[in-house]
Simulated assay, not measured.
Amino acid sequence: MTETTQTPMPLLTPDQRDQLLANGRQPGGDHVPVVKFFNPVGVGTWLATELDADNDTCSGLADLGFPEIGSFSLEELAALELPFGMHIERDVFFTGAFPISAYAEAARETGSITTAIRILSNAARAQHGERT
């Protein structure tokens, strides 16, 4: 039996990288998250809003058991070796709808980014439904 090595999905698409870099050139803004990363086998969710010119340091909201605004390294996320040959993944279905401050507030109130996303997504759908 041969063992296959799974190649992880790139953490960022070129468009996401461009948007994060553009946001990074406008620091201090309350940007809408561009991308969500998550640990598929455990704790860990990250929402990225900005990327520094070093192409490694992201700013955003991280949740490793307690949600907090800060910075994190793409290189470190990509290098994490998880059980079962898994890696940190990019949520291909995530689309930010609110500024990062809204996600941070909801995450602090609910205790997790995942729950905050669900609540804010439901609010956005309800808001959209009222307009149509």
Rank of each mutant, 00 (worst) to 15 (best):
M1D: 07
T2C: 03
T4M: 03
Q6T: 08
Q6F: 05
Q6L: 13
P10N: 13
P10E: 08
P10C: 02
L12C: 05
L12K: 12
L12M: 13
P14D: 14
Q16L: 10
Q16R: 14
Q16W: 08
Q19H: 08
Q19Y: 08
Q19T: 13
L20F: 05
A22Y: 02
P27V: 09
P27F: 00
G29I: 05
G29C: 01
H31D: 00
H31R: 00
V32L: 06
V32E: 02
P33A: 06
V34P: 03
F38Y: 11
F38Q: 01
N39K: 07
P40S: 05
V41W: 08
W46I: 04
W46E: 06
A48T: 00
T49Y: 01
L51F: 00
D52T: 15
A53H: 10
N55Q: 13
T57G: 07
C58K: 06
S59P: 00
S59Q: 14
S59A: 06
G60N: 03
L61Q: 06
L61W: 02
A62R: 15
A62C: 12
D63R: 08
L64F: 14
L64A: 09
L64T: 11
P67H: 01
P67D: 05
P67K: 03
G70N: 12
F72E: 05
S73D: 07
L74W: 03
L74R: 11
E75W: 08
A78L: 02
A78M: 00
A79V: 10
E81L: 14
F84K: 10
G85K: 00
M86D: 09
H87W: 02
H87T: 15
H87C: 10
H87I: 05
I88N: 11
I88G: 12
I88S: 12
E89C: 12
E89A: 14
R90F: 04
D91R: 07
V92D: 05
F94S: 07
G96L: 13
A97Y: 01
F98P: 06
F98K: 13
I100M: 09
I100T: 05
S101I: 02
Y103W: 05
E105G: 04
E105Q: 08
A106S: 11
A106Y: 03
R108F: 09
R108L: 12
R108P: 01
R108D: 09
R108G: 04
E109M: 01
E109G: 04
S112R: 10
S112K: 05
T114D: 10
T114E: 09
A116F: 09
I117F: 05
I119W: 06
I119R: 12
L120K: 09
L120T: 04
N122S: 13
A123I: 02
A126D: 11
A126E: 10
G129T: 11
E130I: 09
R131K: 15
T132Q: 07
